[in-house]
Design a protein around this nucleic acid. Structure first.
Length: 431
DNA sequence: CCTCCACTGGAATGTGAGGCGT
DNA sequence: ACGCCTCACATTCCAGTGGAGG
């Protein structure tokens, strides 16, 4: 979904800010809210939104670095091939787009630069990628070439692409976002070899963007000599940078709606967990929406905490989505035990007793203790549970001690929403 | 240093769903 | 429709474990 938004943005960067939400209109129907006391321009919190140049936070070095490497392009020479990598939400695509736009504008008078952006998660086969590349770089009036949507072979697409590149540009920068989604990397080889093998006069530079570090490592072995790329690594944002990024979007909210500590808190949460700016802004938007739904006029720390909890719930939901009922019952027994007792870890037999109760109430088959232990162990693999050993000494024997890694309330709430567990909790929550 | 206990976890075995060739 | 195989899930059995306490 967001890929589409991104692309849309790329073509019309201005429109994003031009739109406003929730104009007041005479509207008599009381079931609809006609004004929004929280947001003034929610679009600023959209994923595709890209701030102006001077508002890109904490990426000065990367911008300078990338600029240096693209310098050859603006003089009409071959730019270096570059692999940009780093975790999601670290501003990779943003910086690349920003710098290539500037490169286009900064080109020498007698040099024309073509920039094409391909989202490989959308165009994930070689043919699709080449054809949309050709379409994006084409201008039928200039080249007289029209690109058919389908019906021609991959090599034909390449030939058309070479022709377009030669007639229109002196150098071209081709951005392949999410390269790791490509089913084959033929396009990398063919594009990087195009000039060498004298298929085109135009100099071609590739910028490949990936959030999988393993992909970058494995790339050398596969495409090897032809695609000789330099790396550019993006660190996750720290709390200060995240805070600044969010302050830059403050205008999404009406003035005075955000209380002082909202943004610092959201930034701290995000930095602690992932350093992902995209998720951080999501949290902020969520907090606003929660406040809106509650008819509050201000967004407070509490709303941020609630938003964070919501996000964690979503994450956990994804994690256990598709787990068998038994695994859920096992987790539920551990979660309820954790909530009820004032401790956080329990020996297996205690959890098993609890599990048997849960099964009785939910009418689930009770599995053997042996199988139960295996299921608990599987949860360790998923990172939901931690198991350590404890020896109770003479007369005590060896026990496993199980601890829920996730917040037990979140686990309970998520599982509670799960249909099969619906009505059990009210009955068993009391000791 | 030895003992002792109560659980742990490997191995063998059973069961039923689903895929594959005929 | 049939037998055959594989796979995931589940049970039963039991030797092994390892540190507090004697």
């Amino acid at each position: 979904m967001w890929c589409a938004t991104r692309r849309w943005f790329f073509v019309h960067p201005i429109q994003t800010t031009a739109m406003t939400t929730n104009r007041e209109k005479p509207n008599a129907d009381p079931i609809f809210k006609t004004t929004n006391p929280i947001f003034s321009n929610k679009d600023l919190l959209k994923i595709g939104h890209v701030p102006e140049a001077d508002r890109i936070v904490g990426r000065e070095e990367e911008i300078a670095d990338l600029g240096k490497r693209l310098s050859d392009a603006i003089q009409g020479y071959s730019p270096e091939d570059i692999v940009v990598y780093g975790k999601t939400g670290t501003g990779k695509s943003l910086v690349v787009r920003h710098v290539t736009n500037r490169a286009k504008a900064a080109a020498n008078a007698d040099v024309t630069i073509g920039v094409a952006y391909i989202d490989c998660s959308e165009d994930n086969t070689e043919t699709q990628a080449v054809s949309s590349l050709a379409m994006k770089l084409n201008n039928q009036d200039e080249t007289g070439v029209s690109i058919p949507y389908h019906g021609i072979s991959m090599s034909k697409y390449y030939k058309l692409l070479w022709k377009i590149l030669d007639t229109r540009f002196d150098s071209a920068i081709i951005i392949l976002d999410e390269v790791d989604m490509l089913k084959d990397d033929g396009i990398l080889m063919k594009l990087s070899r195009a000039e060498e093998s004298q298929k085109v006069e135009c100099s071609v530079g590739i910028i490949a963007i990936s959030n999988k570090i393993q992909y970058v490592e494995s790339l050398d072995e596969r495409v090897g000599s032809s695609f000789r790329a330099r790396d550019l690594f993006f660190d996750p944002y720290d709390a200060n940078q995240l805070r600044e990024i969010m302050y830059n979007r403050e205008e999404a909210f009406k003035e005075g709606v955000l209380t002082e500590d909202v943004i610092p808190l959201a930034a701290a949460f995000a930095a602690q967990e992932h350093g992902d700016a995209r998720k951080a802004i999501d949290t902020l938007r969520h907090a606003g929406e929660i406040a809106y739904r509650a008819d509050d006029t201000k967004v407070t720390e509490e709303h941020v905490r609630a938003a964070k909890k919501e996000a964690e719930k979503d994450r956990f939901k994804d994690l256990i989505n598709g787990s068998p009922t038994q695994a859920k019952a096992v987790l539920l027994s551990l979660a309820s035990l954790t909530i009820r007792e004032e401790e956080d870890s329990f020996i297996t037999s205690d959890v098993y007793d609890r599990y048997k109760q849960v099964c009785k109430i939910t009418h689930i088959d009770i599995l053997s203790g042996r199988r139960f232990r295996d299921i608990l162990k599987e949860q360790v693999f998923l990172g939901v549970v931690e198991i350590s050993k404890r020896n109770m000494g003479s007369g005590g024997g060896i026990h496993n001690v199980n601890r829920l890694v996730e917040d037990p309330e979140i686990v309970r709430d998520v599982l509670y929403e799960d249909t099969r567990m619906e009505d059990w909790f009210d009955q068993t929550d009391q000791p």
